[in-house]
């Protein structure tokens, strides 16, 4: 199956031309994916209302009156303004907590669900699956939060998110891949179910934990709507909320307008992407494991 690259020889030409066009197509497609983000990155480092076609992070700074490369004034503002860096810390906190709780609940739930002989296990799994297709809705859920006193508490955001049926089912299918003989052997060795869970199931599912953990982390980091509904205090907003707030505020206040509004918005977008950009290349394979696993099982 050797393919020769030759644009003239009629035997190879059609294929070769195809390869050329395919390559060009993907270069174009990748550009379409990256340029919007890159454009925002550039604008975040130019302290003026410049949009236009400019795709370099260099621009005129009205504060110094000079052309500067990589003007980081907006980033400095984000790092020093408690109204902006506190939400970032909240985001980190809720992401870590949600991921931890999410993994705890998914693994425990999945481990129980694979016990085929356990009385009631079918009922448990129907109870779980039913919530995927039916729920109480916005107002009833709000009123439940009110009744249990979770309003204006970050738990109102983290707890519901930590119970994700899709992720739980995914975890179950990972667990089902573990050979039953291992459980049997451990049981004969006198291991308790908890012991088996900690000593056998978890160590064998590192890939699953990584991929599902990342799903939880991404979802928690991206969460916005729950903050609109449940969180009242401005000290508990996460970064997504703050970012959205920057974009919605019509009456930009006059305090500290040394920074162009669009520059600040762009910088906030970049800041909310950055943590993910760092981990993404390392985690890509786990994401893919998760999705293909889900696809096969679904």
């Amino acid at each position: 199956m050797k393919k020769k690259f030759n644009l003239i020889n009629p035997q190879y030409a059609p294929r070769s031309w195809f390869v050329v066009f395919n390559t060009l197509f993907f270069i174009f497609l990748m550009a379409a994916m990256i340029i919007p983000i890159f454009k925002i990155f550039c604008d975040s480092m130019v302290n003026e209302t410049v949009y236009g076609l400019k795709l370099i992070p260099k621009g005129f700074d009205p504060n110094t009156g000079k052309e500067v490369w990589f003007n980081t004034i907006a980033y400095k503002r984000i790092v020093t303004d408690p109204g902006l860096y506190k939400p970032f810390l909240i985001s980190i906190y809720t992401t870590i907590m949600t991921t931890f709780l999410g993994l705890l609940i998914s693994t425990l739930g999945a481990y129980v669900l694979i016990q085929k002989d356990m009385p009631g296990v079918k009922i448990f799994s129907y109870m779980l699956l039913f919530t995927m297709i039916f729920n109480g809705g916005l107002i009833p859920t709000f009123l439940v939060m009110k009744n249990i006193g979770l309003l204006d508490s970050l738990w109102a955001v983290m707890l519901p998110m930590s119970m994700n049926v899709y992720n739980l089912v995914l975890m179950r299918s990972f667990f089902e891949g573990i050979p039953t003989s291992l459980f049997e052997a451990a049981e004969i060795d006198g291991c308790t179910p908890m012991g088996i869970f900690v000593k056998i199931v978890l160590p064998l599912s590192k890939a699953a934990l990584a991929s599902i953990g990342l799903f939880f982390a991404v979802a928690a980091w991206s969460e916005y709507f729950h903050y609109v509904i449940y969180i009242k205090s401005s000290s508990k907003y996460n970064f997504q909320y703050k970012l959205r707030d920057l974009f919605q505020d019509k009456q930009e206040s006059d305090q500290g307008t040394k920074i162009n509004v669009n520059t600040l918005k762009s910088a906030a977008v970049i800041v909310s992407i950055v943590p993910f950009m760092f981990i993404y290349p390392f985690c890509q394979k786990y994401f893919m494991t998760g999705v293909t696993m889900g696809a096969v099982k679904e």
């Binding site: 009110k146 309003l151 907003y237 707030d245 919605q248």
Partner: peptide, 21 residues
């Protein structure tokens, strides 16, 4: 003093009444 974000101020007010707090 509680100072919610400006864009969603009204929602925060009605939600706080709905929560009876």
């Amino acid at each position: 003093i509680e100072k919610p974000d400006h864009a969603k101020y009204y929602e925060k007010v009605t939600l706080s009444f709905a929560s009876e707090e």
